[in-house]
C-alpha cells in the first residue's frame, strides 16, 4: 500500500492528486492528518456507525417477524402507538441515517480535504460549428422556397391552425349525451326534489313531521327516493345535489325568504351545498341563524333569504319551498328554483 492510497494513515500531508490543479487556498492539516491515533479513532467511528446500521437492519427484520402487529406500547410524547410500527420505523430510519452519517464522517475526517479546481469545457460551441449550423439553416430555407411560394406558405399556416380543432371538438364527448338526455347545464340545474317529494332524515331515511323539529332544531335531510336513484346511478351525484338542511326558528324571526310562504310554520329548508366551491355545510348557529362554511368561512343568513353576510361566496344559499302532505309529513313543493352549489358557465 502506497502513501497515495492511504495518505492519512501514516499522518503525512495529502499526496499530490495527479492532474487536478490544487486551488489557491492554504491547506490546514486536520488532527487526523497529523495524529495517527486520531485517524484510527475516526476509522473506528465510521466502522462503528456501519456496524450499528447492520444491527438495526437485522433488528428491523426481527421486529417484523417477532412483534405482534396488534401490540401497542406507550411512549412519552407520542402516546399509545403500535409497537411494530414504531420499531420498524425507528430501525429503518436510524439505519439509513447511520450509513449516511458514517459516509460523511469518513469524508470529513479521512478522505483528502485539499481544495481542488474542477476543469470544465467552455459552454458555447466553437465558432466554426456555429457558422456551419447557421449556413445549413439558411440553405434549407432558400432551397425549400418558403419565402418565395406565398400560396404554399399561407395554406400550410392555415392547415396548422385548423389542426387542433378536431382534438378540441373531441372533448365534447367527455360528457355522454345520447339524444333526449339532459344537457350538462340541465343536469347541474336540477335535483331530485319535485312537488310531493317527501323529506327524510339523512342516513336514517325517516319521514319527518313538522312537530318533530323544535325551534332551534337542525336536521340534515334528503329526498325519500334518494337510495333508489343512488343505486341506479352507481354514484353519489344525486345525494350531492339534493342534500338539504331543515332549521326551525320562531316565525317572527324570519326577516325574508326567497319566496312567499316557502317555510312551513317556521321550518326552512336550505341547500346543504355551499355556493362558493360546493362544500357541504351545516354549521348552523341557532341564535344568529348564520350558516357558516368551514372551508372558506362563507356565511349565510338563513333568517334573511340565505343571503351572504361574509366570505367569498357570490350567491345566496338556494331555498327549497316545503309543505306537508296529507299524512302530515314534510315534503318539497317543487325543485330548487335556482341551481344549487357553485357557479358554472351556463348558469343564468
Amino acid at each position: 500500500m502506497s502513501d497515495l492510497a492511504h495518505p492519512t494513515e501514516h499522518g503525512t500531508s495529502p499526496a499530490p492528486l495527479g492532474h487536478s490543479p490544487v486551488a489557491d487556498i492554504p491547506h490546514r492539516p486536520r488532527v487526523t492528518d497529523t495524529d495517527p491515533k486520531a485517524a484510527r479513532r475516526a476509522e473506528r467511528q465510521v466502522a462503528f456507525m456501519f456496524v450499528l446500521a447492520m444491527l438495526l437492519f437485522i433488528a428491523f427484520v426481527a421486529s417484523f417477524v417477532l412483534i405482534d402487529p396488534q401490540a401497542v406500547v406507550y411512549i412519552p410524547v407520542f402516546g399509545t402507538v403500535g409497537a411494530m410500527n414504531i420499531a420498524l420505523g425507528a430501525c429503518l430510519g436510524a439505519g439509513a441515517f447511520l450509513i449516511g452519517a458514517g459516509a460523511i464522517q469518513w469524508a470529513k475526517k479521512l478522505m483528502p480535504d485539499v481544495e481542488v479546481v474542477q476543469e470544465r469545457h467552455t459552454m458555447p460551441s466553437d465558432p466554426a460549428a456555429t457558422a456551419e449550423a447557421a449556413a445549413n439553416y439558411a440553405r434549407g430555407r432558400d432551397e425549400s422556397g418558403f419565402a418565395r411560394y406565398k400560396l404554399i406558405r399561407r395554406t400550410l399556416i392555415g392547415a396548422m391552425a385548423l389542426f387542433p380543432i378536431p382534438i378540441i371538438v373531441l372533448l365534447r364527448d367527455l360528457w355522454p349525451t345520447p339524444p333526449g338526455s339532459p344537457s350538462p347545464d340541465q343536469i347541474l340545474s336540477t335535483t331530485l326534489w319535485k312537488k310531493g317529494e317527501r323529506i327524510v332524515t339523512d342516513a336514517t331515511y325517516q319521514p319527518i313531521r313538522a312537530a318533530d323539529i323544535p325551534v332551534g332544531g337542525l336536521v340534515s335531510a334528503a329526498p325519500a327516493d334518494l337510495m333508489e336513484v343512488q343505486e341506479a346511478e352507481h354514484n353519489l351525484n344525486a345525494r350531492g345535489k339534493a342534500a338539504i338542511i331543515l332549521v326551525r326558528m320562531d316565525p317572527t324571526e324570519i326577516r325574508s325568504q326567497q319566496g312567499d310562504g316557502w317555510d312551513y310554520q317556521g321550518i326552512l329548508a336550505y341547500s346543504k351545498i355551499c355556493t362558493h366551491v360546493g362544500c357541504p355545510i351545516a354549521l348552523y348557529e341557532r341564535r344568529t341563524h348564520h350558516l357558516l362554511c368551514p372551508c372558506h368561512q362563507s356565511t349565510f343568513d338563513l333568517a334573511d333569504s340565505g343571503h351572504v353576510v361574509f366570505g367569498p361566496a357570490a350567491r345566496r344559499m338556494p331555498q327549497l319551498p316545503i309543505g306537508v302532505d296529507e299524512e302530515g309529513f314534510l315534503m318539497a313543493m317543487s325543485d330548487f328554483q335556482e341551481p344549487i352549489g357553485p357557479s358554472f358557465w351556463e348558469r343564468s
Binding site: 336514517t204 318533530d212 323544535p214 325551534v215 332551534g216 332544531g217 348557529e285 341557532r286 341564535r287
Partner: peptide
Amino acid sequence: TGPQSMPVFADSTLPVED
C-alpha cells in the same frame, strides 16, 4: 337542549338509539 349556538337534535328526528 342545544346549548348556546348548537342546534337542538330532538329525539323525534334523532331517536334515543341514534
